[in-house]
């Protein structure tokens, strides 16, 4: 019973699926003379591959449920393409947003947004939203911002940022490099560790990867449902990634940089590519105080 209680915070189940009609209501019918170019299209689950090929796997790895695509047209102007992803849970929407954050300047739309080169993306509640144009001009850019703001206002729910983010040493990392996830495939997109899932990442775990300001090393934090799962992952990682560390939890890798890991109660902290052993240990010391 005790372990079940420990699992509860992480074993979040998707809330009810949002119907296409309800998703459609999130969108304005017109803005600045842009109107629907055609009826919207929806893609549920693996149907996302009818809209995008392999890239759809990224959204599925974040618990994607349904995509609504709406195109807006205005004579003589850029087409505006709106994609609303129902990610089923706020943590998934947040993860999908962090997966591509750092593209450009932040915008105050939704619970976190960015705009660059015609693409404005943001997350709010269970939704991740992209509003885009192919070629920028003043009117079309204004419409993109207006459209995104209207959608954001229509989404009434607010999502919680996963608690693991608060465990990071806030002043030490580059915010735009933060990636939140719980699947090995996403980890490997941002920092390739191994083809096998050495950290035992799954829906019951929470993970965050950041780059450290001072030396550009990588800090990976993973929270497990309990200490047993964290122990198992640590054992697998050290055995297969750093066997010569002989339990010290630190090793100099082939690029002459340092990898070090440490376990808290139900969490692992791993530093990759630290310039020195001391730098790796110092960072882990700082993190360990938070994951104890």
């Amino acid at each position: 019973m005790g372990s079940l209680l420990l699992l509860l915070p992480l074993m979040m189940t998707p809330s009810d699926t949002v119907s296409p009609a309800a998703m459609q209501k999130l969108l304005p019918t017109a803005l600045f003379e842009w109107t629907f170019a055609e009826p919207s299209k929806t893609y549920t689950g693996r149907e996302i591959f009818h809209y995008m090929d392999g890239a759809g796997e990224v959204y599925l790895a974040y618990g994607f449920q349904r995509l609504l695509v709406q195109r807006y047209a205005r004579p003589g102007q850029e087409e505006i393409l709106v994609e609303v992803f129902d990610m089923s849970l706020p943590r998934n929407a947040y993860g999908a947003f962090t997966n591509m954050q750092g593209r450009g300047p932040a915008v105050e739309i939704g619970q976190g947004g960015e705009y660059k080169s015609g693409l404005l993306d943001f997350w709010k509640g269970r939704y991740f939203v992209c509003v885009m144009i192919d070629r920028e001009n003043d009117d079309a850019k204004k419409a993109v911002f207006g459209m995104a703001a209207m959608i954001s206002e229509t989404i009434t729910e607010q999502g919680e940022i996963p608690g693991i983010i608060a465990l990071l040493p806030q002043a030490d990392y580059l915010p735009e490099t933060l990636r939140y996830f719980y699947r090995n495939e996403i980890l490997n997109i941002h920092f390739y560790v191994a083809d096998k899932n050495l950290f035992h990442l799954n829906e019951a775990t929470d993970a965050v990867l950041v780059r450290i300001k001072s030396d550009k090393s990588y800090l990976l934090l993973i929270q497990y449902p309990g200490s047993t799962e964290a122990d198992a992952a640590l054992a697998d990682f050290t055995r297969q990634y750093m066997p010569e560390s002989r339990g010290s939890g630190v090793v100099r890798t082939e690029n002459k940089k340092w990898t070090a890991c440490r376990k808290g109660r139900n969490a692992l902290a791993v530093v990759f590519d630290a310039p020195t052993q001391a730098a790796a240990r110092k960072l882990l010391d700082k993190v360990q105080r938070r994951i104890r």
Binding site: D195, K196, L198, D236, Q240, E254
Partner: peptide, 14 residues
């Protein structure tokens, strides 16, 4: 878990 796991270190070694 297989011992033939390919890791980042294998890439670095090569």
């Amino acid at each position: 878990m297989s011992e033939s796991t390919m890791t980042r270190r294998d890439f670095l070694r090569t």
